Amino acid sequence: MSRTIIAGLATALCMAASAQAQSILTAETAAPNTTPGISIIALSEAAAKEGVADIQVTSGQTLTNSVQNVAEGKTDIAAAPFILPFFLSRGVGPYASVGAEKGAELAGNLAVLYTYRISVQGLYAYDSSNIAGWSGVEGKTIYNGPPRGAALSNARLLIKTSTGLEEGSGYTGIQVNWGQAVKTIQDGSADAFVLPMSFPDPRVSAALASGNMTIFSMAKDVFEGDAFQKVAGIPGTVRFSMPVADMGYGDGVTIASEDGTFRGPGTVGADIVNASMDFDTAKALTAAFIANIEGIYHAKAPFMSVSWHGETDIAVTDMCGPNPLKYHPGAVAAWEEAGYALPDCAK
């Protein structure tokens, strides 16, 4: 065999080995039409485009489980509302069976690549239900999320803050997995819905086939009151307001607000990794995200451009304070090389 042929074979083998050396990572996220679902899918595209990794995404997951899977090293990446690592760090809520000691250990295994607003929790109902707002929740059946997870916890808390009512005594709650959400909204199982929303929200838009809807803002006095101030102090919850005119809805949806502004609790989270992920991989993933915020992330859905991807101000990221998570060191390097400033408390 000639030296030219041998050299050619060697080059081909090296190229094949290089291609195979690209990382293969796993990721879990929520339904693919939600902000966390789209965010992880966009990351997989950005990582492939930049030659960082092949990310195998499993969508439609309950993020409570996904967060624990990353903490235990079973999954590489997951979308995570910040309330979940907070619960995990204390072994409470959906992680009560884990216990405080083990929960704190697992939460210490988690690190952030980048943050975003996952949703805004709100109340909506078909106009035919004759529910006039938060005062109409009492005694009704409310679809408030999947059987287990941050959305359910947030919905119960929002209803209590807005009305003083507890599930079971003040209203009946029903829980259905996200894959059945639109069907459940449409089939009359519930009188109203307290669910995470984007603007415009795909679940609301899909359910309009069964009738017109009204989305109800939190009352301004409740939003500015002491009780909601305490809610906004919970990790992963921030105050959110937006002009009704900017919410992106067309015919079939009415926004009920006393002054033309929609108000509610914003749920903030991140795409997270295990803290043991090597520096270079975490840096490259974060750099791929930063480079493709406009080209991939914002192009995925109308609501993605207002979901706070690329923000680093702790007023909207909700890093620091009682939030137990910090940015992965590789992510810190990527952000800073891209010209962003991260607060020291989040590093």
Rank of each mutant, 00 (worst) to 15 (best):
T4C: 03
A10D: 13
A17L: 03
T26L: 09
T26E: 06
A27Q: 13
A30P: 00
P32H: 11
T34M: 07
P36V: 05
S39R: 05
A42N: 15
A42F: 12
A53T: 13
A53W: 02
I55Q: 01
V57C: 02
N65H: 11
S66Y: 06
V67R: 03
V70W: 00
D76E: 12
F82L: 06
I83C: 08
L88W: 08
G91W: 12
G99F: 01
G103V: 03
Y114Q: 10
Q121E: 13
D127K: 15
S128L: 08
G133C: 11
S135F: 01
G136F: 04
E138R: 12
N154Y: 10
L158T: 11
L158H: 05
S162D: 10
T163E: 07
G164D: 07
E166P: 08
E167S: 10
E167R: 07
Y171E: 02
Q175L: 15
G179E: 09
D187L: 06
L195Q: 15
L195S: 11
F199M: 14
S205N: 05
M218K: 07
D221G: 10
E224A: 15
G225H: 00
A227Q: 07
A232P: 06
V244N: 10
Y249P: 05
G252Q: 05
T254L: 04
S257M: 09
G260Y: 06
I272F: 01
D278P: 12
A282P: 14
A282K: 10
L285Q: 00
T286N: 10
A287S: 15
I293G: 12
G295H: 04
A301R: 13
S307W: 04
E311T: 10
A315D: 05
T317K: 10
D318Y: 08
D318R: 07
M319Q: 04
N323F: 04
Y327K: 01
E337D: 15
P343K: 15
A346L: 11
